[in-house]
């Protein structure tokens, strides 16, 4: 690995100053579970690593019934899984965080890191898309909020500008009878990158769908929403048949490729299956809320 400097600021301001100080060659390190591998493979060669794990607001999980959730971007996945609040209000996002790598990885990796690494196959991204998450970004020019669906610009790239970092993930409070679910397809039962991931968030009004969002992973250059599938469901009863149809519509949003992890043909098929299952799972939970 190349040589680099390491700083561990304790405030966002310090972090922003450090990041802005070293041109394009400074990088945030949070869990490091993607970054250190990229550095070992010489894919990234930052001259400065800014460790943000010591910044209190980046480690916070707080929920307010009106304002919703503030989730520190550096909170390790395992703490998300151990949070009652997360299980109660965002079970789908919580299960996505609990699917990343092994427990060893979850002890380090964060949702902020997963977001900023911007892999098309990131497990938490479809779940964040489904719950309408917003990235709170702080940089030299101040603070801005970017919805996750506008965050990614391509495989491994995003809207972050020089000196900027994602400080928190903001998620609106779930409406009554709302719940989310995330499901992925991997050939093994753990320790894999999703061949396809599907997140769904459903709000029910009686037995009809009042609102729905569907996020998909590993089927396009970035994690994407499947708006047609979601719109189709509005006003309908969510059952095997409508979920199946929504799955078919989700397939139309996907533009998967062949790679070492799966074929385009297989991915296209599985998008439908997982969308259906995620929707049915979210609806099942929503009925109990």
């Amino acid at each position: 690995m190349h040589e680099f400097s390491y700083e561990a600021p304790t405030t966002v301001d310090q972090a922003v100053k450090l990041l802005a100080s070293d041109g394009d060659s400074a990088r945030v390190i949070c869990g490091g579970t993607d970054l250190l591998i990229q550095m070992r493979n010489a894919v990234r060669k930052p001259r400065l690593l800014v460790d943000v794990k010591g910044i209190p607001e980046m480690r916070e999980i707080s929920f307010d019934a009106k304002a919703g959730l503030k989730l520190g971007a550096a909170v390790p996945c395992i703490e998300i899984h151990e949070s009652q609040v997360m299980h109660r209000y965002y079970p789908g996002l919580t299960e996505a965080a609990h699917l990343i790598g092994s427990l060893q990885i979850q002890s380090r990796a964060s949702i902020g890191g997963n977001l900023c690494n911007s892999s098309p196959a990131a497990d938490t991204s479809p779940a964040l898309l489904a719950v309408g998450a917003i990235a709170k970004i702080v940089g030299p020019a101040g603070t801005r909020e970017v919805p996750v669906e506008k965050f990614f610009t391509g495989p491994g790239t995003n809207v972050l500008q020089k000196g900027e970092l994602v400080v928190q993930i903001l998620i609106p409070p779930p409406a009554p009878h709302t719940a989310d679910r995330y499901i992925r397809m991997i050939p093994r039962n753990e320790m894999d990158i999703a061949i396809v991931g599907a997140g769904a968030c459903v709000t029910l009004d009686g037995d009809k769908v009042a609102a729905a969002r569907i996020g998909l992973g590993a089927v396009a250059p970035t994690p994407i929403l499947a708006p047609k599938a979601a719109e189709y469901l509005i006003g309908k009863k969510l059952d095997e048949k409508t979920a199946e149809r929504a799955g078919e519509l989700a397939r139309e949003s996907a533009s998967p490729i062949d790679d070492m992890r799966g074929t385009a043909e297989y991915r296209r098929h599985v998008v439908g299956v997982l969308t259906k299952r995620a929707l049915l799972g979210a609806a099942e939970r929503a009925r109990q809320n």
Partner: peptide, 16 residues
């Protein structure tokens, strides 16, 4: 070789 890692060369884990 595209899958030259233990991540993508999928040997069984104990959960499998």
């Amino acid at each position: 070789l595209r899958n030259a890692s233990f991540l993508d060369y999928r040997m069984p884990t104990c959960l499998d």
